[in-house]
């Protein structure tokens, strides 16, 4: 298995009232952007939280770079960066202070840390926001710092959960361009969203997740062929209807 890839086997997560994930099997590879698609409540956030070792699976396991999320959470966390739409920042700190604070957790110190901050500044075009307090930043600038925080240690796996939520058109465009660039550098990007056109633009493969079950995994061409439509949105609806029909 490639060290930057992700694998899940029979991944199940139950909460008191229901199963949020019902045996997820996935294999993702280095250099690809994978779209984890589904409506609210499909299990996307649960999957990403398991991959980020924030919650434990009820059954099954997942591996990132060969490390189990169950038994080696610290090793997994060194390999990932996570961004979600609801993530905030420390409002009384500047962008640079936040990056320094998080960078140290990955062993980045001194000159190396300074160079990494310069790198994220270049890659994301942070500019003046680096030395502004968060409370003085625009939402687009804040989101750039959130992404910068996630990639500062150059993780081979980037987990994005509804990452464009609340962003204006410029900030959204910048983020989508960045994701494509990051993938081209040989990293794995998991892009979870319910905005399907975004996934259509940046993902190589997609997975349809509906009520905790993975209905389909394949390339965009495979989706079109399987569901006989050019629209990812229509394909997803067909997949969901087929699943519900089969269940009935």
């Amino acid at each position: 298995m490639n060290s930057a890839s992700i694998q899940t086997k029979r991944l199940r997560k139950s909460y008191r009232s229901a199963d949020a994930l019902k045996g997820l099997d996935l294999e993702l590879f280095a250099g690809e952007a994978f779209g984890l698609l589904g409506p609210n409540g499909a299990g996307k956030t649960t999957t990403l939280r398991i991959l980020a070792t924030l919650i434990k699976p009820t059954e099954g396991d997942a591996w990132i770079g060969g490390h189990s999320v169950r038994s080696e959470p610290l090793a997994v966390r060194r390999l990932i960066g996570i961004v979600n739409g609801g993530m905030g920042l420390y409002e009384r700190m500047s962008g640079r202070e936040i990056l320094h604070f998080f960078g140290r957790f990955y062993g980045l110190e001194g000159r190396v840390l300074t160079e990494r901050v310069q790198w994220v500044d270049q890659v994301l075009g942070i500019g003046a926001a680096l030395d502004k307090k968060v409370q003085e930043m625009s939402s687009g600038m804040m989101q750039k710092i959130v992404v910068a925080r996630a990639i500062l240690h150059r993780p081979p796996v980037l987990l994005l959960d509804e990452a464009t939520r609340g962003l204006d058109v410029f900030a959204r465009r910048a983020l989508l361009d960045f994701v494509q660039e990051y993938k081209r550098s040989g990293n794995t990007v998991v892009y979870s969203t319910h905005v399907l056109p975004e996934a259509e633009e940046i993902c190589d493969r997609v997975g349809f997740l509906h009520l905790g079950t993975l209905l389909f995994v394949g390339s965009l061409d495979a989706v079109k062929e399987r569901y006989e439509t050019d629209s990812l949105e229509r394909a997803f609806i067909k997949a969901a209807e087929e699943a519900e029909g089969a269940a009935a």
């Binding site: 980020a52 610290l74 996570i82 993530m87 905030g88 420390y90």
Partner: peptide, 14 residues
């Protein structure tokens, strides 16, 4: 509430 805890807990720190 601010959504900063999740990012902190996802770092390689116990």
């Amino acid at each position: 509430e601010k959504g900063t805890l999740e990012a902190l807990l996802a770092t390689p720190v116990s």
